[in-house]
């Protein structure tokens, strides 16, 4: 029985994939908890399995072994459709490559998850969210015409617009220069502090590690701390 204040709970979770050379364990025996409103930073080298771990925690992927509990519900046996419904309106994402809808404006990108989860006044909420990231003046600009830093701001606005209980950020500063990366990290944590959203951030940058409430180091598919 999962504890009420746990947002995510992983018990003995493993992930194995088939490769031409046989089975490969990407993650093995991972157990960890993430409390509501906690900011957890996962750090690891390239190929350590941190993105796989994030995918399992968000229900984007299924574990090969063990139990993953999200918002008190065990993800075991839930299909893609059910897991997707669990995320809708509750989980936000910020990706390394921004992943905005090309051909759409900044505000339209922010409106997307709101409308997908059936929120009424998506436009109003999206504009408020853009205001929070300092891009209200570019709300009608097509995202492909924005700089990298601005695109990531739109992605953050999109993630926070739905007032998520949980936000996953996968290398959010990985595609940006140091100064812009710092600004984006500031913004991400500032909004998280304001909203009290649970944050799970994956990075390989030492600077970001210190900004979380808790740090988790991952190496060769296992947790070090």
């Amino acid at each position: 029985m999962a504890e009420d204040n746990l947002c995510i709970e992983l018990k003995q979770v493993g992930k194995t994939v088939d490769t031409p050379d046989g089975k490969l364990d990407i993650l093995a025996n991972i157990s960890l908890d993430v409390k509501y409103q906690e900011a957890v930073v996962i750090k690891g080298a390239s190929g350590s399995g941190k993105t796989t771990l994030l995918g399992l925690m968000a229900g984007l992927d299924q574990a090969s072994s063990g139990d993953v509990t999200l918002f008190g519900q065990n993800l075991f046996g839930k299909n893609e459709e059910q897991r997707s419904a669990m995320r809708a309106g509750k989980v936000g994402f910020v990706f390394q490559s921004f992943h905005l809808v090309q051909g759409a404006s900044a505000v339209q990108n922010v409106m997307l998850p709101l409308e997908l989860s059936g929120v009424g006044d998506a436009l109003q909420l999206a504009q408020t969210s853009l205001q929070q990231v300092g891009l209200e003046h570019k709300s009608d600009t097509l995202v492909e015409h924005l700089s990298g830093g601005e695109q990531q701001r739109v992605a953050i606005a999109r993630a926070y617009a739905i007032r998520p209980k949980l936000l996953f950020a996968d290398e959010p500063t990985g595609n940006l220069d140091a100064t812009t990366g710092r600004q984006i990290a500031d913004l991400l944590f500032h909004l998280r502090d304001q909203s009290g959203t649970t944050l799970v951030l994956v990075t390989h940058e030492a600077e970001l590690l210190e900004r979380g409430d808790r740090q988790i180091l991952i190496e060769s598919g296992g947790l070090l701390s």
Partner: peptide
């Protein structure tokens, strides 16, 4: 990629 994004954002089949 767009479909995958929509999935991540909670879109159903």
């Amino acid at each position: 990629i767009e479909s995958s994004l929509l999935r991540a954002l909670g879109a159903g089949t």
